[in-house]
Simulated assay, not measured.
Amino acid sequence: MTDSYPNVVKVKNQWLFDQVEVEFPTPESLKGRAIYQSLCEENTVTPLIQSTQETDINLDEIYLVDFHRLTVMFSLLQASRGRDEQEQNYLLEFFTQIIFSEPCYLYVGFKQAEPVAAALITQAENELLISDIVVKDLTYSSVEQFSQAVTQKWLKSNEFSGSFYIEH
């Protein structure tokens, strides 16, 4: 990741990296953080053009993660980004350490009561980033479609005028 990325990317990464900065972090969560950091190095960030039309995704099937069970679902989806079972286990340990706090908001998308997509929104000053997007089994027509839906969901509860970015 280069220094040319918007500040909101650095804010998101620091927030996530700090999740395991506790008195007694598990070795597995620290390994998960290291794997996540290496995944971040492969990411690209581009402007997200906000669609002016409503998405055909049912926004009622996208939930803000605000209790532990949803955190586990979010974490399981995020862990699927690991290259093998061991990496997935470490990522799962890392993501289940998350404590809800601003400036980051976690979302899980459902289809027929099954968690099928996840994303993280970070707001820092006049920048909004949607990142850590996982869409299982092409449930949505594209990652961008789910990103637009999550952003619309977030905007229903938050006022924002600034730049939108997506991290792939």
Rank of each mutant, 00 (worst) to 15 (best):
K156L: 02
N126R: 14
F146V: 00
L155Y: 00
E23I: 03
E127C: 11
L106E: 15
E41W: 02
N58T: 07
S163Q: 00
E41R: 07
F94L: 07
F74L: 12
V65H: 09
S4Q: 07
T139K: 09
K31T: 08
I62H: 05
A149S: 05
I35V: 11
E41I: 05
S141W: 03
Y36H: 06
E114P: 07
I166Q: 03
V9W: 00
P27A: 14
E42L: 10
C40A: 06
V9P: 07
V143T: 14
E102R: 12
S38T: 10
L92F: 15
C104R: 12
S161V: 03
Y90P: 05
Q50A: 09
F110R: 08
L155V: 01
E167Y: 01
F74M: 12
L70Q: 15
L59R: 04
Y165C: 03
Q123K: 15
V150P: 12
L138T: 06
T139M: 10
E144W: 05
L64K: 13
V150Y: 10
A113I: 08
P115D: 13
F94N: 09
A149D: 01
K111T: 05
V150S: 09
A118Y: 06
T55S: 08
Q53A: 04
P25M: 00
E21Q: 04
D3E: 07
Q152Y: 01
I166S: 01
L77T: 12
K31Q: 13
P115C: 13
S80K: 14
I98E: 06
L76C: 11
T26D: 01
V20F: 02
V22M: 06
E23Y: 10
L91V: 08
D3N: 11
L92D: 11
V134S: 14
F160I: 00
L120K: 15
G82C: 10
R69E: 14
F94V: 09
D3M: 04
F24T: 09
K111G: 04
Q37H: 04
N158D: 01
S147M: 02
V116N: 11
V20N: 03
H168K: 08
Y107E: 12
L106V: 14
F67S: 11
E54K: 10
L138G: 14
P115E: 14
D84S: 02
P6W: 00
K10F: 11
E21H: 06
L91D: 11
N7W: 06
V108D: 15
H68F: 13
T2N: 12
D132Q: 09
Q97F: 06
A113M: 11
V65K: 03
L120Q: 13
S163G: 02
M1I: 02
F164Y: 06
V150N: 10
D84L: 05
Q97C: 12
V9S: 03
F24V: 08
F100Q: 13
K111D: 13
Q86K: 13
T46E: 10
N7Y: 12
H68N: 02
F164D: 02
L120I: 13
E61R: 04
V20G: 04
Y5C: 05
F94A: 10
V135M: 15
I49G: 07
S75H: 05
S142V: 01
E144R: 13
L48F: 13
Q78V: 07
E41M: 12
N158I: 01
I121R: 09
L70F: 15
G32I: 02
L155W: 00
F95K: 12
F17L: 04
E167W: 01
E85P: 00
N89V: 09
